[in-house]
């Protein structure tokens, strides 16, 4: 059984360390997964449908227990982990402000900001909403926004949280090229400035290339480094 993405010894400031992980629900979907994610990295996980990309992400997020192996996430419990699920996880009947504020709520603590805690939270919401270009929709219920706008709300919510690790499941789908650049620029700027990391599940290989520093493919039940020269068909998509 191959070691896929080695847990290298020279990893500085690792945020995620997964060792010999077997993921799945009752039956294993993929096994012997090893991964080290360092500060400032953006990693894409690609692979055909049903191989366990989302399950891998959910396992890192702590929503699914690994069937075997260990996973270590060096982030604080409250606010340290940002998650954008495939269906975005927005509260649809409330406003954009409310949704982004959920992120700011866990990102801004009274202990850190004292009495200016409330205004800092408000400032953070407004700046993230503005960075995502949805300021004019701030009072709109999320359910009235287009799919692309909703993705920007989910991204703004995660940025307002200022997490150390962002887990995103196909969060760029439904966005046109201009919007992808705008969203990516904001996310990359945050990662560069904060030293956070991002693990992104992406179905579209070209988009994953555009986004990430490293690409890994879950193929044949294992996590392999993505080989540039292979086409989609050659990696059995």
């Amino acid at each position: 059984m191959s070691i896929n993405e080695s847990a290298s010894d020279d990893a500085k400031d690792p945020i995620v360390i997964a060792k010999n992980l077997t993921i799945g629900y009752e039956e294993p979907l993929a096994s012997n997964l090893n991964l080290v994610v360092k500060s400032g990295e953006i990693i894409s996980i690609v692979g055909p449908s049903g191989v366990g990309k989302t399950t891998f992400l959910r396992t890192i997020a702590g929503m699914v227990s690994p069937l075997s192996g260990t996973i270590e996430c060096n982030v604080k419990r409250r606010g340290g982990l940002g998650y954008i699920p495939q269906r975005l996880g927005l509260v649809r009947h409330t406003s954009v402000y409310h949704n982004v504020d959920l992120g700011a709520r866990v990102g801004v603590s009274f202990g850190e900001f004292g009495l200016s805690w409330w205004s800092e939270r408000n400032k953070r919401v407004l700046s993230c909403v503005e960075a995502m270009g949805i300021s004019e929709k701030i009072r709109e219920p999320v359910r009235r926004l287009s799919g692309g706008q909703q993705r920007r709300v989910a991204t703004a919510r995660t940025l307002a949280q200022r997490p150390k690790l962002i887990l995103a499941d196909e969060f760029l789908s439904e966005l046109d090229d201009d919007n992808i650049s705008a969203v990516l620029d904001a996310v990359k700027a945050y990662i560069e400035s904060s030293g956070a990391a991002m693990i992104l599940v992406e179905h579209d290989i070209n988009r994953a290339k555009q986004v990430s520093d490293r690409m890994l493919v879950i193929d044949d039940g294992r996590l392999n480094p993505f080989i540039e020269k292979l086409t989609i068909q050659e990696v059995k998509f």
Binding site: R58, A61, G62, M63, K76, R77, R78, G79, G80, L81, G82, Y83, I84, P85, Q86, R87, L88, G89, L90, V91, L102, G103, R105, V106, A154, Q161, P163, L167
Partner: peptide, 14 residues
Amino acid sequence: VRNDPLEAARVMGL
């Protein structure tokens, strides 16, 4: 209620 907002909220640490 739909599971995805709940999951996102739990992972965020609410």
